[in-house]
């Protein structure tokens, strides 16, 4: 495959044609923040945290859904980008009811880490405090919509890796919600295999295994990548 040369934060970088920009940026050791992206799953381009400046373009580009091009000049961390990312994290916190102190993922949560990283110690936006349910009907897992960031990793892993498509999204805008089958209680799902992959990829405490103690959960977001590699390349790195 043809090589292309591009510039990332003033460094010349070579990449394979058609490679996605996020991947190339990360290969340079730059820790570009993401939330909806997960190795091994299709790209969604929804969280917008990985936006970068591309010279000559008036719009920012979400690097996870942008292909590298010859002579591209990319900036990954301007003041403007850092400000936008912080605002996006704040918007996510204002949107649902994120109470870290009582959350099973306290200390291991990706949203919490992003907040720490961007110095979000208070909210400048009015919290919406929506009334949202928790579905604990499944024998092993719970989904707590109060903590969901709508990254749809669970939806994609369920569809693309487990292949059952139990999970999907209903509603629109700020009322969007993850559902089981046709918005049925999880226990009633005829398609769910109880594999738990959705729980492992969830970046927050929205999906968790029952009877786990607060701050004792560690998830396995690397699972999709490993499963996909195992199937395609026949390698399993445990």
């Amino acid at each position: 495959m043809a090589e292309v040369t591009l510039t990332i934060d003033n460094e010349k970088v070579s990449a394979r044609e058609g490679q996605n920009l996020l991947q190339v940026i990360r290969e340079q050791g730059i820790d570009l923040p993401t939330l909806c992206h997960l190795d091994g799953l299709s790209e969604r381009g929804g969280c917008r945290l990985c936006v970068v400046e591309v010279e000559g373009s008036s719009r920012l580009a979400a690097s996870c859904v942008t292909a590298v091009r010859e002579d591209m000049r990319v900036t990954t961390a301007s003041d403007r980008l850092l400000r936008y990312r912080r605002m996006l994290v704040e918007l996510l916190f204002a949107e649902r009811n994120h109470v870290c102190s009582v959350c099973v993922m306290n200390g291991n949560c990706e949203l919490q880490s992003l907040a720490t990283r961007f110095g979000v110690d208070h909210l400048r936006y009015e919290p919406l405090y929506p009334r949202l349910p928790t579905d604990a009907s499944h024998e092993k897992y719970t989904i707590d919509h109060n903590r969901c960031v709508l990254c749809a990793r669970c939806v994609r892993v369920c569809d693309e890796v487990e292949g059952v498509h139990t999970l999907d999204i209903m509603g629109r805008g700020v009322s969007s919600r993850i559902i089981n089958d046709l918005n049925q209680p999880w226990r009633a799902s005829r398609t769910c295999t109880a594999c738990g992959k959705c729980v492992q990829v969830c970046p927050t405490g929205a999906l968790y295994i029952k009877e786990t103690l607060s701050a004792h959960v560690e998830k396995r977001p690397d699972l999709p990548r490993r499963i996909v590699d195992a199937r395609k390349k026949r390698v399993w790195n445990s």
Binding site: R44, G45, G46, C47, R48, L49, L88, L91, L92, A94, E95, Y125, E126, L128, L150, I169, G171, R172, G173, V174, S175, S176
Partner: peptide, 21 residues
């Protein structure tokens, strides 16, 4: 715009609500 936002991307889904407020 808030009512019609599909909810896929964060700025439109959550930002429009804050702007209306």
């Amino acid at each position: 715009c808030m009512d019609e936002s599909c909810g896929k991307c964060t700025p439109c889904r959550s930002g429009t609500v804050q702007m209306v407020r």
